[in-house]
């Protein structure tokens, strides 16, 4: 197998597992926009890094985590709905990113590579980071899935059973921000939302329990990544976009079949 395809498959599968595990909570908590908002917010960090002449990931990671925490805090402390909090902070962060990039005198092509990613150009270090973070996500879910699921189902009942809803929500949003930064170098900012949303949405259409929804989302995430990658390689289409098209087709088929 082509070494580029092999690396892309490993990184893609790792990211699809992470995104699917987190995505089921985003979809079920009606927060798909948070994935989109945070992935665009990361552009602010990348812009700042380019302006300062630092490796983009070093700035994008804390920047996106900070935006995620601020979104959660604004939602918690005001009467605003989550989508409004996301809209405010992601617009501000993206605007800052554009200003930083405009002020930069250096080469800005790097910023645009993060918009669309380069899954066939992943480095061994990207693979290590993706696999390590996937392991962290699985460990987190092993510990917190039941509490997160309970508070997603009914926050008030979960609170009455001493579930630490606030702490768990912050942890979930921090993990999501890190996942987006790890994923965006490989699949790009634009396609991050789809990776977080589509496998979980497909699973929601077909699953009758949240356990099945989680498992199906992971399987769909892996399968569509592998199929999309091979198709893109065979017909020479952009890999990330092909994966999303495959996921969209699967979603459409599931919708029709479930009717």
């Amino acid at each position: 197998m082509n070494i580029f395809l092999q690396n892309a498959l490993i990184a893609g599968i790792a990211i699809s597992i992470t995104c699917s595990l987190l995505g089921v909570f985003l979809v079920q908590r009606k927060m798909s926009f948070l994935g989109s908002g945070l992935s665009h917010s990361a552009l602010g960090g990348i812009g700042l890094a380019i302006l300062l002449g630092i490796e983009p990931m070093y700035v994008a990671l804390p920047f996106t985590v900070l935006v995620s925490l601020l979104i959660t805090l604004v939602n918690e402390r005001t009467k605003l709905e989550m989508d409004t909090s996301i809209g405010i902070l992601f617009s501000a962060a993206t605007a800052l990113g554009i200003i930083f990039i405009a002020q930069s005198s250096g080469y800005v092509g790097d910023a645009y590579s993060y918009l669309f990613g380069s899954i066939l150009g992943v480095t061994p270090m990207d693979i290590v980071v993706a696999i390590a973070f996937t392991a962290i996500t699985i460990a987190f879910m092993w510990r917190y899935w039941e509490e997160l699921a309970y508070s997603t189902f009914d926050a008030e009942l979960a609170l009455s059973d001493n579930v630490h809803i606030r702490r768990n929500t912050y942890l979930l949003h921090i993990l999501l921000a890190i996942a987006i930064v790890v994923a965006m170098k490989i699949i790009g900012i634009v396609l991050c939302t789809a990776f977080l949303t589509l496998p979980a949405a497909i699973a929601r259409v077909v699953a009758g329990t949240f356990t099945k929804m989680t498992l199906i989302a992971v399987v769909v995430g892996i399968a569509t990544t592998v199929v999309g990658m091979f198709v893109s390689f065979l017909v020479d289409f952009p890999s990330g976009a092909t994966i999303i098209v495959v996921q969209s087709l699967v979603f459409g088929v599931c919708m029709v079949v479930k009717r």
């Binding site: 079920q28 309970y150 189902f153 009914d154 009942l157 699953a207 329990t209 949240f210 929804m213 989680t214």
Partner: peptide
Amino acid sequence: YVPQVKTLQKSFPATALELVVNGITSKWKF
């Protein structure tokens, strides 16, 4: 506790049995 206003998320994929088991375990079991 039997609440008056059911604060459950209506679109959450769950069966009646799962909700009763939740009463036993105080968790949403995987």
